[in-house]
Design a protein around this nucleic acid. Structure first.
Lengths: 197, 197, 197, 197
DNA sequence: TATGAATGAGGCTTCATTCAT
DNA sequence: GATGAATGAAGCCTCATTCAT
């Protein structure tokens, strides 16, 4: 009986995952706006109606994808933090590993940006992800400022917004430079710009 | 006869402007995707069909708005350039005045970013504006690198992409800091990050 | 489960048929160009959107109707052919029974002719039906020429085009003569014109 | 003053002709349904509004074109008739010269056929042209029947409808045979089919 | 008489969402 | 829980026709 329930739960969980992956793939291929729920479910090999057993809307799917990503990034940062590095090193390291994760889920960030523009229900989106990511870095920057490692004449939220912006737009970059390398160079500039002499 | 033509042409020009403004206002209020042509024309106080006497599509309108803006920015930069300032000063000055112009047309840049995501015809858009703006700054940065004012260990196109990214995302900023001030601070960081000692 | 599927499929099939009939009726009443998809679906007692679950366009419906008709004609000809009649008899018989079928689906042939004129997508149409019908008769005529029953100084494709033309235009006829009788008389003339002494 | 009026009349006449030719060209190129009034007037190098100074509708233009053609054919027949030939010769001759004229205005006949199908106002069309042409031949056929040259067991209107049908469909022919030759062959069959022994 | 900008009805098509099976 | 056919609102776009100049 317990197994039966578990089996069911596992099955349900799998269907959810299937939909998430299919959605991710479709978003990546055609963009958020040009992906229809029917399209996602066809790619997932499931019926259209099934979608609504797991998600409330396309926005909901995107949100979930984004949350998953954010959780992963957060975890990595925590890990890095345990080594008690300088804020500078920590920020750099975090930026690098975030870049790596984003690179593997390239479509999410840009989608997220535009999703709020797109959808009929923008209110469902912007609060959750963007700030989510921003917060992760803001902590590091604030403590860097407190320690005197980072300039304090610019508010920390401006700086973290700037970090954020680097990810956002680099995800769109058409330059002939690998994503992670691109990020690395920009972060280098930023670090040189905020490091106290 | 000539006057007659002129009168007509003037009227036509005005109608065009009316539509452009109305579109801008609607885009700003509801976003690009959530603005319908019917909505634009209603705001313009004109019939729906009239739209197609002037523009081929919503994308076309956006493109026009963007081109206009770019032209203005370009002009300001040329003006600033005539004073033969240092690259550093020039870049700063240009960034400031660009910020001002964008501030007055706040909706365009973000819209532009997401427009290619949205529309069924993304191919019509991305080539023209985004690179357009980027190029304006790239020239300044390149010559700064040549003069030895800016670091050369980071390609100029990465730097200009970074400038670009500042505008893009700051236009979205939810921080409680005025747009132009926000830009100014970020540009300060960037300049400190790329200026050679 | 299998029954469930069957039930669904049966229903789907029926809906398809309903749409086809409704379309046929509307085409007959108002002509192809003057029939809107909304009109068809209203006549079918179904929602507008449902149309696109079954057909891609009005042209698609017409094509389907035409294919169905052609298949029926083809079948009748095969049946007649099995009696090994003279080419002359065979042609006459086929023409008569084709007339009967067309009479029962009067609107298709004329519509088909003009459909390629009408639609924005004429390329989708002409290949399939017109030649389709012509071919059916061309075989008979060719073998009649080989057997020496029909004159050979006029190419077979001209003759079959002529047969075809009789159907096309008679379908439009405003004369006060029943369709099938009209066809019969014209075929008589044609047969007398191509029969070898 | 009289000259002035004449000048005006001539000018007016010319504009009319310009529109007619432009319309003919557009009909031929794009088909009746796919030709817009704006398109015609652009091709004519005149303003859209001007159209309505000369014609009531697209149908009206087509009608005029057709009438002109019919008048020409009629004239040729009258000329041929004055030689007092046999009905058979007369019919053949007329058919040949009609073929020539139609060949030079190839688009009209087919357009005419489909026009009644197309337009929102089919009632404006069918009476005038189709019968118009048919009548021309019906006279010849009737007198041929009276003289005993043509079979009388088929009503003359059926025969003339058959003649008519040959023109209609041959104008559409995709066969690799020149129009006039194609017509000639079919008329030969028809004549052999209706000639009394 | 010539013009062409303005109009809006009308057609096509997409798609999120529901609901009976 | 899974399904997918049905739905209709909503958007896009075309074009015949009008009317002020």
């Amino acid at each position: 009986m317990a197994e039966k329930l578990n089996l069911r739960k596992r099955k349900k969980f799998q269907a959810r995952q299937t939909i998430l992956s299919a959605a991710a793939r479709q978003f990546e291929l055609h963009g958020f706006a040009n992906t229809s729920i029917a399209g996602i479910m066809q790619a997932a090999g499931l019926g259209v109606g099934t979608f609504y057993n797991y998600f409330a809307s396309k926005e909901d799917v995107l949100l979930t994808l984004a949350k998953n990503l954010r959780a992963e990034v957060s975890e990595k940062i925590s890990a890095a933090d345990e080594l008690n590095p300088s804020s500078c090193e920590l920020l750099e390291r975090c930026c690098i590993c975030t870049a790596k994760l984003i690179d593997e889920n390239r479509f999410i960030l840009p989608l997220f940006i535009s999703a709020s523009e797109h959808s009929d229900k923008p209110e469902q989106i912007p609060q959750s992800l963007s700030p989510g990511f921003r917060d992760l870095f803001e902590d590091i920057i604030q403590s860097g400022q407190l320690r005197g490692e980072f300039r304090a004449d610019v508010p920390s939220n401006i700086i973290s917004e700037m970090v954020h912006s680097i990810y956002q737009t680099t995800a769109f970059s058409k330059l002939d430079i690998p994503f992670q390398e691109n990020i690395r160079l920009k972060i280098k500039i930023l670090l040189d710009g905020i490091r106290t002499p």
